[in-house]
């Protein structure tokens, strides 16, 4: 198999089209532990990679509904039970007057969830990644496109994988240490 100090291989591509077709190839070869990196979300690349849609909206929906109901309950309780006090002739339970804050908290809880879930689901912040050791990889946030295949992938074989990446149009392939 592979040497112990090998984390995987990194291949560089020059254009979105090149990385797009390479991703299709890697996907069709049946690799699992791999990823592609790009300076911007390349339209359709997730399909070429076979990535499933994100589950993030569900987290937002659940917390949003929860936050929304709690706030409505809280307003009702605070105004009607905890300190019942009529101001401006408004009834203790004034649903129309509760709507604005109810709404704001719905938005706030949903947005905070979307924000946090985004980083949590992506495993960020992640201070170190093997690819950061590569000098070429510094261009990933600029204008280059990359594919990395991890050595732990059952189909990984240093020579074959390297050959596959080279044949798919990579302009550079290098090995990464963990």
């Amino acid at each position: 198999m592979t040497a112990k100090s090998l984390w995987g291989v990194l291949a560089q591509y020059e254009t979105p089209a090149a990385v797009f077709h390479a991703c299709e190839k890697v996907r069709d070869e049946g690799y699992q532990q791999w990823d592609s990196c790009a300076p911007f979300p390349v339209h359709g690349l997730e399909k070429a990679m076979g990535v499933k849609p994100s589950k993030l909206p569900w987290a937002v929906l659940i917390v949003g509904v929860l936050g929304s109901s709690l706030m409505l309950f809280f307003q009702t309780w605070a105004m009607g039970n905890a300190y019942p006090f009529v101001v401006g002739g408004k009834p203790l339970f004034s649903l129309p007057a509760f709507v604005p804050i109810w709404y704001e908290i719905t938005v706030l809880s949903s947005c905070v969830t979307a924000f946090l879930a985004n980083w949590i689901m992506n495993g960020l912040p992640q201070p170190y990644h093997p690819a950061f050791a590569s000098k070429a990889f510094e261009r990933v946030t600029d204008d280059k496109f990359f594919i990395m295949i991890e050595a732990t992938d059952p189909k990984f074989d240093l020579e074959k994988t390297t050959a596959l990446l080279k044949s798919s149009g990579a302009t550079m392939v290098e090995e990464l240490e963990p």
Partner: peptide
């Protein structure tokens, strides 16, 4: 935050961005 432009990250990221936009608009 250790962002590396991973496409798997972009998928969730774009969804989050879209949701933030969808909530910010009525906000």
């Amino acid at each position: 935050l250790g962002w590396r432009g991973s496409m798997r990250h972009w998928v969730t990221y774009e969804k989050a961005y879209q949701i933030l936009a969808a909530f910010s608009a009525p906000l």
